[in-house]
Design a protein around this nucleic acid. Sequence first.
DNA 1: CCGCCACATTGACGTTCATAAATACGTTTG
DNA 2: CAAACGTATTTATGAACGTCAATGTGGCGG
Lengths: 127, 127
Amino acid sequence: MAVSTDESIRTRDGTIARRQGARPCCADVPAAMEDVRRAPLDRQRALLSALADPTRLEMVHLLCRAGELCVCDFTAAFDLGQPTVSHHLRILREAGIVTCRKAGQWVYCAVDRAALKWLVGSLLEIV
Amino acid sequence: MAVSTDESIRTRDGTIARRQGARPCCADVPAAMEDVRRAPLDRQRALLSALADPTRLEMVHLLCRAGELCVCDFTAAFDLGQPTVSHHLRILREAGIVTCRKAGQWVYCAVDRAALKWLVGSLLEIV
DNA sequence: CCGCCACATTGACGTTCATAAATACGTTTG
DNA sequence: CAAACGTATTTATGAACGTCAATGTGGCGG
């Protein structure tokens, strides 16, 4: 593959951008990638994907307003089977977004605000 | 179904909670649901699900640090086929998270910080 | 004008996920 | 102890998603 010398390209606004080689863009970005990988990307993604489902997001909204709800409250509110509700609550619990306490035969759930605040903070860092 | 009168239940910490009827929890929450549905849940969910994918989240991270990148930068950085990268960028673009400008035969992408800030603000509202 | 390049689109494939039915578990009540 | 209730788990199914190969599109250079 032939490699030409530097060349200048015209950008949309008419300015001249100086670039190197035959492939003006596609500059190496391994250094930046290192920083990216070091970031707590996994936890961020776990929280985001737990919240990305419409049912679970509505659950969190409802729970934030109600403060504390038991599982049967969700089954009554969401027109979903009890196993499905339990499934979603498990995902939210494993993501650290909700905490559950057992009282008698009921399980009361609440939002872990610290987790949501951490997510917000981590998003603010990259903006 | 028989409905009993008020009854008291024992909670985990030993306190007595007074509840009504045969089904102590599962109180009606339609009023709260109304408020929830009125909230901009859809946009919130769209942004969250766009960010929930590990590749797309890393793209946004990288893009926030780099400021502006063309599509071939991503194909070089992510070890993915060009159609796959294009697919992810389309989702991010349709979600309003990234904006694209065409310069020559390259397409340069940048993060719409306002969108991310809106998401952060909407999350802070419910916490 | 023809070939190359960056990027977008289409179609297909394998995987993941949400949901429901059936079942199991632990607690309360009679 | 047995029945009833709230909740968790298992299993199966259909839909959605990420990925790739092939192809299409538009701009740039020889």
